[in-house]
C-alpha cells in the first residue's frame, strides 16, 4: 500500500477531537404548552417560524419563536407542528409523542467503525477471493 496507515490515522484523530460537539439539525421539543425549537448542538433556534396543523392537515395556528426558541401553542386541535428557520432547517413534531435517541457519541463511533471496517475489510476480502479463484484455476 503506497500510503502509511499510521499517517492516515492523523486525519481521523483530528476529526474525532470534535466529537464533544454534536451534529446539526433542528429539533422541536414540547414543554407543556410551549414548543421549543433547538438545533441539536444545543443552540436555540430564535429565528424559527412554527406552524401547527390539525388531523386534517389544516393550519390552525402559527407564530415565531422567541429568544429562547420557544412558542406558545394556543390551539388544542393541533396534532403536529412544523418549524422552519427559513435557512434550510426544518423540523416536525407530533404532539404528545416522545422521541428516544441513542447517544450521539455511540452513533458517531459506530458510524466510523462501519466505514473503516468497509474500507479496510473489503480489500482483504477481495484479495482473498482473487487468491482463491486463482488457486481454483491452478488446481
Amino acid at each position: 500500500m503506497p500510503v502509511k496507515i499510521g499517517s492516515l490515522c492523523v486525519i481521523v484523530l483530528l476529526s474525532l477531537v470534535s466529537l464533544p460537539g454534536q451534529a446539526h439539525r433542528m429539533l422541536l421539543q414540547q414543554e407543556g404548552e410551549k414548543i421549543c425549537a433547538v438545533y441539536d448542538d444545543g443552540t436555540t433556534a430564535s429565528l424559527a417560524r412554527l406552524y401547527a396543523y390539525n388531523a386534517s392537515d389544516v393550519l390552525v395556528d402559527q407564530g415565531f419563536s422567541d429568544e429562547a426558541g420557544c412558542w406558545v401553542l394556543s390551539d388544542d386541535a393541533a396534532v403536529y407542528v412544523v418549524a422552519t428557520d427559513g435557512l434550510g432547517h426544518r423540523a416536525v413534531l407530533e404532539l404528545g409523542t416522545e422521541t428516544g435517541e441513542i447517544n450521539r457519541w455511540v452513533r458517531s463511533v459506530v458510524g466510523v467503525f462501519v466505514l473503516l471496517g468497509l474500507g479496510f475489510g473489503l480489500p482483504r476480502v477481495l484479495s482473498r477471493r482473487s487468491r482463491l479463484s486463482a488457486g481454483g484455476k491452478d488446481g
Binding site: L8, V12, G111, L118, G119, F120
Partner: peptide, 13 residues
C-alpha cells in the same frame, strides 16, 4: 479503499 474510508470517516464526523 482504506484512504477513502479514512477521509469519509473524517467527513462523517
Amino acid at each position: 479503499l482504506p484512504r477513502l474510508s479514512m477521509v469519509t470517516s473524517a467527513l462523517f464526523v
